[in-house]
């Protein structure tokens, strides 16, 4: 008991001393003004293949905690834009706008086509442009999931085979849990795959284990395979390289890749092959 009291006293004194020694942080009054810019992000829906959400960037002071992020996004949506899509010498306006998503069901969906986007930046009146190719849909030839039981966790291992078409190709496999009411939980685990164009083999067989996430028998998971453009692959790689960054504010500055001229974000088109699996 005496020891405990002594320890408490010493800890208390130490905390006081350390607190007393820490100088007060200074205020910051020379941060450059953030230039408002439109942010383009593509969304995949079953019904339409080309869907865009346009938001604006925001200052550090406007940041909110994770729970309020969706209300923040709602407040950042940029509405009333005239977004033009040009493909095969045809032009289409994204006339439909539903819950922040711009789309037009009339736009022809054709693999290999280039889709050019343009609209006027409402802040600077600059022309915002981007282009993306709708990549060929590639499906899993084989897909197998296995639960790995370790001393502390139950991990998910995924084995897959892809028929890799000719040429240089880039793939993204997303894996995430699905709740009982088919609501997708959290962000996916993203595995990025680059084929070996020098190889005469046109089959990719590999596997990966999802780290630091516990799975259990009877969990439902969604696994999707997408054939993506190199530029989007590079962007995802860049994002992936920052996985171990714990404090953004103190990390190496990075300007993320973007294929948008006079704007931010990424315009990309792909058709995922989706498998829903119940784990055994």
């Amino acid at each position: 008991m005496q020891n405990f009291e002594m320890r408490t006293l010493i800890c208390f004194i130490l905390i006081l001393v350390i607190q007393g020694c820490l100088p007060e942080p200074l205020e910051v009054d020379n941060i450059p003004t953030l230039k408002k810019q439109p942010v383009i992000t593509s969304v995949n829906f079953n019904e339409t293949f080309l869907n865009l959400i346009i938001t604006q960037n925001f200052t550090v002071e406007s940041r909110v905690s994770g729970d309020n992020i969706h209300s923040l996004i709602q407040s950042l949506l940029v509405e009333d834009l005239e977004i033009m899509i040009t493909t095969n010498n045809q032009q289409f306006l994204l006339t439909e706008y539903l819950e922040g998503v711009y789309f037009n069901p009339e736009i022809p969906e054709k693999e290999g086509n280039i889709y050019k986007l343009s609209f006027l930046d409402p802040y600077s009146q600059d022309s915002v442009k981007a282009e993306a190719t709708l990549m060929e849909k590639i499906s899993f030839s084989e897909l197998e999931t296995t639960l790995l039981y370790t001393e502390f966790d139950t991990l998910l291992n995924i084995e897959f085979t892809i028929n890799d078409p000719l040429g240089k190709n880039y793939y993204m496999i997303n894996t995430q849990k699905v709740s009982s009411d088919y609501y997708l939980l959290q962000s996916p685990y993203v595995e990025l795959i680059e084929d070996n164009s020098d190889s005469s083999e046109h089959i990719i067989s590999s596997s990966f284990t999802i780290p630091f996430e516990d799975f259990a028998p009877n969990d439902t998971i969604l696994v999707s395979l997408s054939n993506i453009e190199k530029s989007y692959f590079d962007y995802l790689k860049q994002k992936d390289s920052q996985r171990l960054i714990l404090i953004d504010e103190l990390s190496e500055p990075i300007n993320y890749k973007s294929n948008v001229i006079n704007g931010l974000g990424f315009f990309t088109l792909f058709k995922p092959d989706i498998e829903i699996i119940r784990l055994e």
């Binding site: 941060i31 450059p32 953030l34 810019q37 942010v39 992000t41 593509s42 969304v43 995949n44 829906f45 959400i53 938001t55 604006q56 960037n57 925001f58 200052t59 550090v60 940041r63 992020i69 923040l72 996004i73 950042l76 993204m172 997303n174 995430q176 997708l184 959290q186 962000s187 996916p188 993203v190 969604l222 999707s224 997408s226 995802l236 931010l264 974000g265 990424f266 995922p272």
Partner: peptide
């Protein structure tokens, strides 16, 4: 300086 929001790769 600021942030921007991006939908993740599985649109979820």
């Amino acid at each position: 300086l600021g942030y921007y929001a991006m939908i993740n790769s599985s649109s979820t």
